[in-house]
């Protein structure tokens, strides 16, 4: 795509609007930046020319084919300008344009400016107008292949899935992403989103998810995202963090010499939860004494930069000591 938000002006095929005969009737409106006049600008003739004419059509509220073309030039030069997008939609409606063409255009714009709010919003409006989300999973998958954490792409995907009930193959899609990058927090979040909206947390779902996430934790024991997911899932089980199968897993990991801060912090929180339920177990991985020792290790060795947090948690644990 030729438009970009970088400096323009050297484009040989470009004709300024001020030199176009078909625009001779429209009075351009220069940028007004408040009481002090803007200095004559040399930075980008093209940019200034396009926006002078855009302000011109806005002023006379012209909803025409040529104004539509002009907004295209304007958003290509500056996709963040929300006023131009809004005006473009007004023209599209007014002229009753073929929205399929516009869908292709906005897909191009999304590829060129994947982190821009306006391009994604424009897409969402068009999908709503068309009441057709058949391309959205593919489009977002393509954008996520380029940047697996693009927040706009995920938000759009969730919106399309939720609005048009497209949950069917989403878990498969997520598994593919997690196989590519086990630390993809967005994908873990999406997994929770799908389950929460479909099967919910029935006992067999909980078991299945725990088995899945533990298999992933085994591969990367310091992965904050998978541990957070585990915590999110066990909260739906009756035994919470103290779920025996999970504690056994942690026990084994700990005894194999693993000292990942995520593992230790899970054990500390499980011990705290246990103490809050009034159960005291001596000589176990979940005893208060052991948890205090772990906090100490974390504060002084494995997670020194969060010492303030570990000291706080030690204090919470001590409350339960008699």
């Amino acid at each position: 795509m030729e438009g970009s938000s970088s400096e323009e002006g050297e484009d040989v095929n470009w004709t300024f609007y001020r030199d176009r005969e078909e625009w001779a009737d429209l009075k351009p409106v220069p940028q007004d930046d408040g009481p002090h006049p803007v200095v004559a600008i040399a930075y980008s003739e093209k940019f200034r020319d396009v926006f002078d004419y855009f302000r011109g059509v806005l002023k006379v509220h012209e909803l025409s084919e040529r104004a539509l073309d002009l907004t295209r030039d304007a958003v290509e030069l500056n996709p963040g300008n929300y006023t131009v997008w809004q005006y473009r939609r007004q023209i599209l409606k007014h002229l009753d344009k073929d929205l399929k063409e516009e869908m292709a255009f906005v897909a191009e714009m999304i590829s060129a400016f994947p982190k821009n709010y306006q391009v994604w919003h424009h897409r969402q409006v068009l999908v709503s107008w068309l009441n057709d989300a058949s391309d959205e999973l593919q489009l977002t998958a393509k954008m996520l292949a380029l940047d697996a954490k693009n927040y706009h792409a995920w938000q759009h995907r969730q919106w399309a899935i939720r609005t048009f009930n497209l949950f069917q193959n989403e878990l498969e899609f997520i598994e593919k992403l997690l196989n590519d990058d086990i630390r993809n927090n967005s994908a873990w979040n999406q997994r929770y989103f799908v389950i929460n909206q479909t099967t919910e947390f029935a006992p067999e779902v909980i078991e299945k998810e725990i088995a899945y996430v533990l298999s992933k934790i085994k591969i990367a024991t310091k992965n904050e995202s998978s541990w957070n997911y585990l915590r999110g899932i066990v909260l739906h089980s009756e035994s919470g963090l103290r779920k025996p199968s999970v504690i056994d897993f942690c026990d084994e990991l700990y005894n194999s010499g693993n000292r990942s801060a995520c593992l230790l912090s899970y054990l500390v929180d499980a011990a705290l939860e246990q103490a809050e339920y009034g159960v005291v177990k001596e000589n176990s991985l979940l005893s208060i004494d052991k948890a205090l020792e772990l906090c100490d290790n974390l504060a002084n060795e494995f997670d020194v930069c969060r010492r303030g947090y570990w000291n706080y948690i030690s204090g919470c644990l001590r409350v339960h000591m008699n």
Binding site: Y151, Q155, N189, Y192, G232
Partner: peptide, 16 residues
Amino acid sequence: HNFDGGFGSQPGSESH
């Protein structure tokens, strides 16, 4: 509010 304690832009959106 998300399962990890954070918040996102809309219900279900990733914590940010």
